[in-house]
Amino acid sequence: MGSIRNKIRIVQQFMRCFKSFMKWAIHSFPRGSSFGQIGQHTVIEYPCNIGNPNQVYLADQVAIRYGISIINAKHEKVTIKKYSVIAPQCTIVTNSHRATVGVPQFILGESHVNDKSGDVVIEEDVWVGANSTILAGVSIGRGATIGACALVTKDIPPYALAIGSPAKIVGVKFTKNGIIKHEKMLYPIEERLTLDELDELFEKYYSDKKIFGVEDELTLEQQVKIHSVKQVHNLQ
């Protein structure tokens, strides 16, 4: 009888380990069909940890590098728009626990009482640096750059450079003329920021900020490199 009980315990332990492994595998290697949307030429590097991938929407030409974690509530969405890149080991959270009198953290984390939840939106052409964390309800504007290891707790405007914990704006990607030129190359006219919108952005956020991007014309060698990358991804 003892031998039979031991065998039963071994089988039970194996089944628990197998279930844990399958749960890890499903989250770490989600199928493309399980996402809310995956656009054309979008790249996902595995392993990654994505909760509720049916609530994750990836547009065309998005890159998700290895080790990303999306800690996603059931009813909140994560939207990453075209041309954006999420560098390795980043974390995106769509809900956070709020301390509640009489409820210990052990219970709070699983009961989700008084959670603060919200969609996360990453607009077009955004770079999120390695090991950064984006919290619930945050929107990151078009063309923004988030420095490595940043903690993003509030919205970031278009074309900002934000670094630190919590993330603060320390620069702007291009001049107004540089942004106009950049957007002419990337977007149809109806999607481009207007001069009035740019004037408002610069007056509100960037009047004393340094330009960190490069606005020089591309050299022939640089053009060849860009063409090679486009060929790899079957882009025009």
Results as ranks from 00 to 15, higher is better:
2 G>Q: 14
4 I>W: 14
4 I>G: 08
5 R>C: 08
5 R>A: 09
6 N>S: 14
8 I>V: 09
13 Q>H: 15
13 Q>P: 09
23 K>N: 12
24 W>Y: 15
28 S>Y: 01
34 S>Y: 11
39 G>Y: 00
47 P>M: 10
50 I>Y: 03
58 L>V: 06
60 D>C: 12
62 V>K: 07
67 G>F: 07
67 G>K: 03
69 S>I: 08
70 I>S: 03
71 I>P: 11
72 N>H: 01
72 N>A: 03
73 A>L: 11
77 K>I: 03
80 I>Y: 12
83 Y>M: 09
90 C>K: 01
97 H>T: 00
102 G>L: 05
104 P>S: 08
107 I>A: 15
111 S>L: 14
115 D>I: 01
116 K>D: 09
118 G>Y: 10
125 D>Y: 06
126 V>D: 02
126 V>F: 05
127 W>Q: 03
128 V>T: 02
130 A>E: 13
131 N>V: 09
133 T>H: 14
134 I>V: 14
136 A>L: 11
140 I>G: 05
141 G>D: 05
143 G>T: 00
145 T>C: 10
147 G>Y: 00
148 A>R: 08
155 D>M: 00
165 S>T: 09
165 S>G: 10
166 P>Q: 06
166 P>D: 07
182 H>T: 12
184 K>D: 11
187 Y>G: 10
193 L>A: 01
195 L>P: 09
200 E>W: 03
209 K>L: 04
210 K>S: 14
213 G>L: 08
214 V>N: 13
219 T>M: 02
222 Q>R: 05
223 Q>S: 02
223 Q>E: 05
226 I>C: 04
233 H>W: 07
236 Q>S: 14
